[in-house]
Design a protein around this nucleic acid. Structure first.
Lengths: 194, 194
DNA sequence: ATTTTAATTATCAAAATTGAAAATCAAATA
DNA sequence: TATTTGATTTTCAATTTTGATAATTAAAAT
């Protein structure tokens, strides 16, 4: 009985807004005021539903890591059996498919890692896991490639991808995006020749 | 006559500290207090020597662009005649030679571009110029490569390089750095085979 | 309709940040 | 040494940000 709780939805709403603010202003620049405005809620509701600044960051990191894991896994599972690598790169470099905010949040959390050793540990693992996920796709289609080459191409594609999405705050850079995608494909192609 | 002015040195001192803070906390997170502490000066001296927040950012951008142009030019001029590309990549991925803070400042300014169209214009040009500089080195040693391939490899190497240095706040990631450098070399090598 | 549960709003104090000006101190020269 | 120029420190008010609690309102069940 009593008024039904909407805490779960509010929490999501707030964390989504927080994510947007972190992507735009960085971890240190995302003030509670901005988050509240972005969420369309009064500031005290942030405290009521999630907590103070530290609680907020902890919740964001938790959400980021779990969502990332799920979405990467889902993407890999959705890849076709043939031409999986090319399809993966198509998706990573398609601005309509890939979520730039995801990468911007990752970069903000990586930047904040300098002040937060515990966060650094988590983000190191996240980075290596992401690269390892790409590597597993590459390995399926270039099983004759050396382990070092697989490591290199996976790190290279990840780097080009991160960098490409990190340019989005400047606005349209479709020429660089296009060249970057082509570079990723060249990297992958060089695997098949090894 | 009168007491000699130290404004130029103070200005440099302050902008250097500001740069460090921007690299660590982002444009929005670099407060005057933090800058003053980093510079080892009283806060009013920032205002006295450089100005308010906006003046500070304008001065930083100006300094960043001019220093970047000079240092990239100097690096390219210092390249040997033979194996210029390999040497360039050696330098870009050598943590003792390459300055990670330079890349972190660039990323922070790119992130801040979303709120500042004028800054976006400058940083777009800067990004394209940097890629074009890499391209000019590549072109010298792979003159038979197609223009599109040169664009792609230049953008790819730049992206891998930016991304690698942007990971430094997490601490030691030498495995990823090593793999990234190898990827950059593979990209370049694929040019020669085209 | 009353009760109960929880969302929402109002309000306050403390701390941090910024902008700005006045006052003071230091190092040159005449 | 007196003067002048400018660095440095002191101080103040205004604004923003944060943390926290009390008061109010809304929506369900009995």
């Amino acid at each position: 009985m009593g008024r039904p709780s909407v805490k779960d939805e509010r929490r999501e709403q707030i964390l989504r807004a927080y994510e947007t603010c972190v992507a735009r202003f960085g971890v240190e620049g995302a003030s509670l005021e901005k988050i509240a405005e972005e969420a369309g809620l009064a500031r005290p509701l942030i405290r009521h539903n999630v907590g103070n600044r530290d609680d907020l960051l902890a919740a964001l990191v938790d959400r980021f890591l779990s969502r990332s894991e799920r979405s990467v896994q889902r993407m890999i599972d959705a890849l076709p059996d043939s031409r999986a690598t090319e399809t993966l790169i198509d998706w990573l470099f398609d601005p309509n498919y890939s979520d730039a905010q995801f990468v911007l949040v990752a970069e903000a959390l990586i930047a904040a890692s300098q002040e937060d050793p515990a966060l650094a540990t988590l983000m190191k693992r996240w980075t290596r896991d992401f690269i390892a996920s790409l590597r597993s796709v590459l390995e399926n289609e270039a099983s004759n490639a050396s382990s070092d080459d697989l490591d290199a191409v996976a790190a290279g594609v990840a780097g080009i991808y991160f960098n490409t999405d990190s340019l989005t705050p400047m606005g349209n850079m479709s020429d660089v995006r296009h060249a970057s995608k082509r570079a990723a494909l060249m990297l992958v192609a060089s695997l098949e020749r090894s």
